[in-house]
Nucleic acid binder design. Structure first.
Lengths: 197, 197
DNA sequence: CGCTATAATAAATGACCATTCATTTATTTG
DNA sequence: CAAATAAATGAATGGTCATTTATTATAGCG
């Protein structure tokens, strides 16, 4: 919580947003290794020094950008989420959402991919991120209780549902796989067969 | 092919190997972004300048290391490979091999993970790497022809078999999953259910 | 041993890095 | 408008980067 004791100039939300997009763009285009604060600031159209008003340091910039994307991702995956529907329908909806998000926000996917395989990944508050996906964890548990899903740890289910959706929606990683309505349905059947009892 | 026209001092294979291991270690411990030629050379116990006798530049060092690991990986996965056995047995063997390799060579796994999500990934001769895994591609195709496996692109099969094996064997990515004989069997059943007709 | 070719290296180079500092600019309130 | 406060920045700092250069060490052969 920020308290304004007195007269003060407010931070520019447009700059904040520009920095977020610039970070994703520079990291994706030049790679994690070659991404510098200067490049990101220049891409966002601000001075490198200004960046340090919005973020404590480079690490903070990268970690914050990651958490932000994860939040966007969870929101996108949960569009139309309805607890009362059959489990298969819920997951199918999720699967479809993932592909839509993946095709329309490929840059975010790639950033997450690079970030989560870097040592920066250890710096995120993983409890916070897992909370975004809590509704799904609940559905999975319900499926296990109702003898619809195999009784395996949550991680195992995610490996056969979320990861494939991510991987398949990235043409960089899956060049030989064409995304259309039919292929989305077909690949969901694979995921579903993997986890259902 | 190298031709020795005359007297020449030979390159040191121990240094070559030390450089390979040092590259993996430094990249895993400090991350792709903070890995420098100097750090790698120091870890290998040689001068940075010497590194340039063995590799054209940093890019060549990283790409070569990646290809080398991929070769080791394919060799490890194909241990005991027997074309004449039932497809399920072949894949089960592969699955088990992946876990053994993963637990004993975690550093290689992590390097591959970091590398393949970086822009360097675009620089590898992917045909060369795919060749390592050609026997598996043939088995998969046979499975499809014999109506044992679902008729989907090879990439889709790999997403439900190889990736899960990799992900599950990495305790960093799958903290809640304990590897033992029972859990290897159980998770293979998920993979098999996904791809079998 | 001395010749030759290459491995090996220490040191240097210029570029770029993250971050800080001194200063200026913009905004709000009295 | 003027005072107050924080946003914004250009320039500087010290360090590290990838790579090259000039030099030395080493090995095999006549």
């Amino acid at each position: 919580m920020v308290i304004y004791y007195s007269v003060m100039r407010v931070k520019d939300e447009i700059k904040q947003e520009a920095l977020f997009e610039a970070t994703v763009k520079v990291v994706n285009e030049t790679g994690f290794a070659q991404s510098s604060v200067s490049k990101i600031a220049k891409e966002a159209g601000i001075s490198p020094a200004t960046l340090y008003i919005y973020y404590k340091n480079k690490e903070d910039l990268l970690v914050s950008t990651y958490v932000q994307i994860k939040q966007n991702l969870s929101t996108a995956l949960l569009v139309g989420f309805d607890d009362s529907r059959p489990i298969r329908d819920i997951l199918k909806r999720l699967w479809t959402n993932a592909f839509h998000f993946g095709t329309q926000n490929r840059a975010y996917f790639e950033f997450v991919e690079q970030f989560s395989n870097s040592p920066y990944a250890g710096l995120v508050n993983s409890a916070e991120v897992e909370e975004f996906f809590e509704p799904l964890a609940r559905v999975m548990q319900r499926g296990i209780d109702e003898k619809i899903l195999k009784d395996v740890p949550f991680e195992v289910l995610t490996v056969f549902v979320f990861y494939p959706a991510m991987l398949l929606s990235s043409p960089k990683l899956c060049a030989g796989f064409e995304i259309n309505e039919g292929s989305i349905d077909q690949t969901f059947d694979l995921a579903w067969d993997a986890i259902r009892l």
